[in-house]
Write a protein that binds this DNA or RNA. Sequence first.
DNA 1: ACGCAACGCATCCGCC
DNA 2: GGCGGATGCGTTGCGT
Lengths: 93, 93, 93, 93
Amino acid sequence: MANVGGVSGAQLRQFIERIERLEEEKKAIADDIKDVYAEAKANGFDPKIMRQVIKVRKMETQERQELEALLDVYLHALEGGDAAAAADDDATA
Amino acid sequence: MANVGGVSGAQLRQFIERIERLEEEKKAIADDIKDVYAEAKANGFDPKIMRQVIKVRKMETQERQELEALLDVYLHALEGGDAAAAADDDATA
Amino acid sequence: MANVGGVSGAQLRQFIERIERLEEEKKAIADDIKDVYAEAKANGFDPKIMRQVIKVRKMETQERQELEALLDVYLHALEGGDAAAAADDDATA
Amino acid sequence: MANVGGVSGAQLRQFIERIERLEEEKKAIADDIKDVYAEAKANGFDPKIMRQVIKVRKMETQERQELEALLDVYLHALEGGDAAAAADDDATA
DNA sequence: ACGCAACGCATCCGCC
DNA sequence: GGCGGATGCGTTGCGT
């Protein structure tokens, strides 16, 4: 009985297996990351500091993206030709 | 100054960038997983049940692995020739 | 000043001391466990094997619990009357 | 076969069960601690800060105990009646 | 906004 | 005494 209540069990199985496959890939990458840290450590770098560096760079990236997003909002408002929109944009920011 | 305190800044940069790249991939896969859950939900499947099913299947796999690990440790103990091997007689009954 | 910003310092003290007391008890039990391992080792048992046996038994218990949780979630889904119940047809095969 | 290689499996079983029992108790206490934090939070206290407070107090306790231990060493050295001992005590500290 | 769960980090213990 | 593995803690992200 692969079909109950009009819904395909086989289809569910496909979803489950796709997810399990993806999670395996995710784990594999996480392991790769651990390997890189280990290799770096073997070359005299401190993993703890490296993590800090990566965290900071990530934050900088996020800030930059947010600024770009904000810029886009402004530009689109101008494109729209509605002068008031630009004025409203970040009154709450 | 690409060399500070005897360590190569360029080498560090390589490690950092490899890790950042891998973390992007990891995030991409995590997003894919979310997408699959969303797609399954759109097809009438309950994500909560799916997560539980995946969790159970994962635990089954882990338990097999732990049993294999236990077997390994028994075998090594036998190699060592000491009394600890007695652990297999009824502890798991 | 036992009252700062509208919160009772005395009350906080009670919470802190309760927690500290509980943590002492927890540590005492952890020490007891170490003692048992030491005693077992003195009787010729391998602690490593013992830990693995305990881990396996624990996982067996957890798996039973997860299966029960899965059953619960199935039953609730059936109550809800929606198609998600189809998850039981072959996903675990 | 409760006896292999002259070692009692029943005895091992006793050790295993004692440990499992103790670990249950430990877990129960850990849960109690969580409950206290939750209760404190419900009364408007920040668990994160509470943890900091407890950590600091613990460190202070440890420092005090170390000082007392050091004092004991000095006192015992004096009791020993060996004048040189007191002078040696912490030359390497 | 809250609570839960997974991840990563720090600490500690046993082994070499 | 250093190293690797295991455990507990704290943080972050996800789902409700």
